[in-house]
Write a protein that binds this DNA or RNA. Structure first.
Lengths: 340, 340
DNA sequence: GATTGGCAGTCTGGACAGACGAGTGCCAAA
DNA sequence: TTTGGCACTCGTCTGTCCAGACTGCCAATC
């Protein structure tokens, strides 16, 4: 009974603080929300909530603000992800469907996510791990230089120029090409990598060095390290909007945004494409980002994610709205990647 | 005689203001620079410089700061581009030579430029205009879906998936592939585009629709619109370093950095690869960027530029150093692109 | 036992005034 | 033409003060 009201008070505090950016007092609370009780009662509840560590006051005789723990409680127990409006859904889908290129899809996702949430959006490139080899092409540039092109089912293209230790005749190249294509095309990249290794073993000594060099380059191109390293960031202009004491944390924030490794770590936890990960303030490993929260989720055709996307902003953010936007964009990206 | 000293005073003011970020007074000036005259004399010179509109005081009884016109004068007449140290040259070349990919080259250029200048770096992707076709590949995905891959001499890869109106037999595909390759590979893209158009004309009516569709897609991929739209930005963390009244202009700045079209416009003036363009403060068309300057130049194998790169920062910046860094990086990028 | 009204106490933010200091402009002298 | 001196102007910094907002606690009430 009183417990219910206390939680209502917590919710009200979070909502008010998020929208006004100012510590919220008992009087203002009963005015803005119809709690049906007097400020004094609310004060008692506040004292209890503070006891539990869910809210705090920046200084004596100021209003209360939610703690990280308070936000956590709010996110976990007090809110539903509010569905997007029809107009928003339409906006997302039309905007994303204009893309005809993987790069384009990623770019547009970042934009729409930043636009919707008014936060900083981050989208990771899809991992190669679950994709398969669509095509391999070997192009002779000169007698000892070879251009290797690897095309994956996600639409990603990797290319390398390699130097061959020995000259390669056009006829041999044709044979090699067909053997390599036969071994790898259509396979998942892990399988393809193994097959290429085996191919080297099976080759007689004349062409063996060639096959070895080419296979090595291909396997290297398939290794998803470089790929998953790539993230795209957007909406940094929203940083200015954050204002407040956030000015001081703007520098580490900008630095973090350039350090893509950090971003990947932040996104990294979101591996499932059906749940949304929320990291609030100091829950993460980076002390510089103690005043920021991350809302992220995985995306991908199946249940398992091939990449992550999300937003990062001040702990004082509209969690329900952000979560809804992240989820919606992830779904659209998944379907688009599926049909491509 | 006095004129010479006045210019020395202007130079000293610019240098001091750039390094201290504070209006510089007559007394401080004679202390830091050995001008051989008294503060009073400097005051007279300052009055004259102010008369000419080269310096200004933010308020009465404050030191002087250079105006945009003052910076312009400084850049045009009072300074030489100071050459990079051997260590810096080595740092640039080793860092850039680690790249094995066009994307990589661009990424690294941005990083090194931002690092050297401590400003925000911008690098435009090379224009397709002067590049040639290295390879074209057609891959059948299904009987009516075709993957087209276009590889250019700059190392850029473009790919498209197209839907064919009529089924295409494997044998026909092989023929088409070789005809298209024969017509376009090795040619500059303008020539290649024409050749592909001609090819459509020469084709009998059975394969004609196929050729037309494929050629259209290829020509579209060759058109450099999308390509030159792409720029990469780095060093945004340096924004925080700018400090001062720059805080207010941080928002338009961030917005501009997201609007790549604006950046291209800023870089756009730098078309020659042997001269360095400097745009100071309100000289440009964007009133929001009245407190920023741009230092840019073109890069490219020959004299004519295939792309631009540069830095943007507060008008109060180290112009000689920035210009030197921009020039050095542009040269290295040019040579690397040349040998690739 | 939960709720309420009242009251005293505490703290911040903003306004205000005054001292300080850096710097200028001008003038007369060298 | 340069220099030293002097009066003057302002912005910045510091300290003080007041209004306002909020809390915590207590006694009264439902």
């Amino acid at each position: 009974m009183q417990e219910d009201r206390r939680l209502a008070v917590l919710r009200a505090i979070v909502e008010d603080y998020v929208s006004t950016r100012e510590p919220v007092g008992s009087k203002a609370l009963v005015e803005r929300h119809r709690l049906g009780v007097s400020p004094a009662t609310v004060r008692n509840d506040m004292a209890a909530l503070e006891e539990e560590g869910l809210i705090a006051q920046p200084h004596t005789s100021a209003g209360r603000i939610p703690t990280d723990k308070g936000y956590r409680f709010f996110v976990d127990r007090l809110t539903e992800i509010k569905p997007m409006t029809a107009a928003e859904r339409r906006a997302i889908s039309t905007f994303l469907e204009g893309a005809n290129d993987l790069d384009d899809v990623i770019q547009r996702s970042v934009r729409v996510l930043a636009q919707l949430t008014q936060q900083i959006a981050i989208v990771q490139y899809p991992s190669l791990a679950r994709s398969s080899v669509r095509h391999i092409e070997l192009v002779s540039l000169s007698q000892t230089r070879l251009l290797i092109v690897l095309i994956l089912s996600t639409g990603r293209v990797e290319q390398r120029v390699i130097e061959l230790p020995v000259e390669l005749e056009p006829e041999s190249l044709a044979v090699l090409r067909s053997r390599i294509q036969h071994a790898a095309v259509g396979e998942q990249i892990t399988v393809a990598a193994n097959a290429l290794g085996a191919l080297t073993e099976q080759t007689d000594h004349v062409d063996r060095t060639h096959v070895a060099v080419i296979a090595t380059a291909l396997v290297e191109a398939m290794s998803n390290e470089r790929q998953t390293e790539r993230v795209v960031v957007g909406g940094t202009a929203n940083l200015a909007r954050f204002g407040d004491g956030f000015d001081q944390s703007i520098k580490p924030m900008l630095e973090a945004l350039e350090e893509h490794v950090v971003l990947l770590k932040l996104l990294g936890e979101a591996t499932s494409s059906d749940s949304i990960t929320v990291r609030i303030g100091s829950e993460g490993p980076y002390t510089e980002l103690a005043t920021t929260s991350v809302v992220a989720t995985g995306y991908g055709p199946g249940e398992e994610a091939v990449g992550s996307l999300g937003i990062v902003g001040p702990t004082r953010m509209d969690y329900p709205g952000s979560m809804a936007a992240v989820r919606a964009v992830a779904r659209y990206v998944s379907t688009i990647l599926d049909q491509a």
